[in-house]
Amino acid sequence: MANEVLSAISVCKGFGGILALDHCSIRVEEGDIVGLIGPNGAGKSTLFDVISGFLPPDAGSIVFSGREILGLPAYKIARLGLVRTFQIPRSLMRMTVLENMMLGAQGQAGERLYIPLIRRHKVMAQEKEIREKAEEILEFFDLRRMRDEYAGSLSGGQKKMLEMARALMADPRLLLLDEPFAGVNPALADRLIERIRILKEKGLSIIIIEHAIPYVLALSDELYVLNKGRVLASGRPDAVISDRRVFEAYLGEGA
């Protein structure tokens, strides 16, 4: 029986009278990939913002690893192992790819102001470990040869990859990927799908927001469809996608 990693219950969030999230509930089982789709403005990214603590919700409950995380500051939620990426890749443009990666590591003693001054060897040893881990993950994403480039000089697709790689540096238990395939060319996308599957096999739980439905279907164990801040449908991907209401919600967007 799988464990529950995340359970967001009845989350509400309004922006000046418009309910971006309207009693929205979502659950993630350990080791599952959960797809999150829906027309533009359905509230997908807002849900990510709320779960990761970047936006305070108006109501609801969010339990991660058996602990209520609602109200915790975003950085503390990340430290618990719930790490997000951003829809528009937010590389640290003026830092190198390797620096971007090394930033992601958790529990770095040298991040305390006085430690680098008094315990240089300890910091250097830890830096070496982190660097090795970073290079390993970069290799996994075919980015290793770019490690000394400024992140600002990467292509859009590479930035997306770096963003995901950097999040993995934090050893997350649950990863929130916001449109990981946007701007990634089709050939690269197939390799990305493969890699996300490998991560899943290693036990990582993932929520993916994605517009390209074929990719979501290829990856998800569970699929949620959001529309106007509500969960319109959820369940096994093939069942959900053939639901007429889902089709209509997307149709409504075109009209």
């Binding site: 990340a78 790490v83 990426t85 937010r90 003026r94 930033l103 991040e111």
Partner: peptide, 27 residues
């Protein structure tokens, strides 16, 4: 020394994009 340390790295990440630093668990 500080600029080249992990502490300095966090600082630079905040300068570049605070949200990224926060999303990676930095206060």
């Amino acid at each position: 020394t500080l600029a080249r340390s992990p502490w300095g790295r966090v600082l630079k990440s905040i300068r570049d994009d605070e949200a990224v630093a926060i999303s990676l668990g930095k206060n």
